[in-house]
């Protein structure tokens, strides 16, 4: 479990995060929703250990793996090498195959489409054995046709981890989240905290629609 205690972060006297207290549960995917620029990425950077200058406490993040909002691939490495740089070759090849990118294994990032690069970036973060998995808009720019298979990949690789994910698309959230946190744009306060009872893989269309309504309320 990750515990954020009295977390505050300001940029030039402007508190982006103002005294935030929240727990993220183990073996659970929490989807963070808010207006853009509210402080999602800042919170994720603090949990990842990339932002040091903050007030309050972050407890229990353990080993963290991240899909950044930008792909951040190494231009000089092939698709496969971009995953192998954080994992063993077998895991990297398997993930590339699961992402449907085996044929692109030896291609360089500049030879791939935006959606392909996104999947490689996501695969890289899934390839690592971690306690915490941070996914900052992992499905950005992905084809709708691909989303179902990527959802199930994220679910498979999230087992036993504390997963925090952001998205702009509520459909992504109701498909894979166990819990939804909706933050206000001002001071990054929790406005809604909804836990979904039915596990993601058992949700049918009816339940997904019901959850959608719950978020939209």
């Amino acid at each position: 479990m990750i515990k954020l205690e009295n977390l505050s972060k300001s940029f030039e006297d402007n508190f982006v995060i103002d005294n935030l207290n929240v727990d993220f549960l183990d073996n659970s995917i929490t989807c963070v929703l808010s207006a853009s620029g509210a402080g999602k990425t800042t919170m994720l950077r603090i949990i990842s250990g990339l932002e040091k200058d903050y007030l309050g406490k972050v407890i229990g993040a353990g080993k963290v793996s991240v899909t950044f909002q930008e792909d951040r691939l190494f231009d000089w490495l092939t698709a496969l090498q971009n995953i192998e740089i954080v994992s063993d070759s077998k895991t990297a090849k398997k993930l590339l195959e699961q992402m449907g990118l085996s044929a692109q294994a030896d291609k360089y990032p500049n030879q791939l489409s935006g959606g392909m690069r996104r999947r490689i970036s996501l695969a890289r973060s899934l390839a690592v054995q971690s306690d915490t998995l941070i996914l900052d808009e992992p499905l950005k720019g992905l084809d709708v046709a691909l989303k179902q298979s990527v959802y199930s990949l994220i679910l498979d690789y999230s087992k036993g981890k504390t997963v925090i994910m952001t998205t702009h698309d509520v459909i992504d959230a109701v498909n894979i989240a166990d819990r939804i946190l909706y933050f206000s744009a001002n001071g990054f306060k929790i406005e809604k905290d909804i836990a979904f009872e039915i596990p993601p893989k058992q949700r049918d269309e009816k339940i997904i629609n019901k959850y959608m309504e719950q978020i939209m309320e």
């Binding site: 250990g49 990339l50 963290v64 950044f68 951040r72 190494f74």
Partner: peptide, 13 residues
């Protein structure tokens, strides 16, 4: 050097 890639290096230890 791309600061974003240095952060990748940091996160993935």
């Amino acid at each position: 050097v791309d600061k974003g890639l240095l952060e990748v290096a940091k996160v993935f230890e």
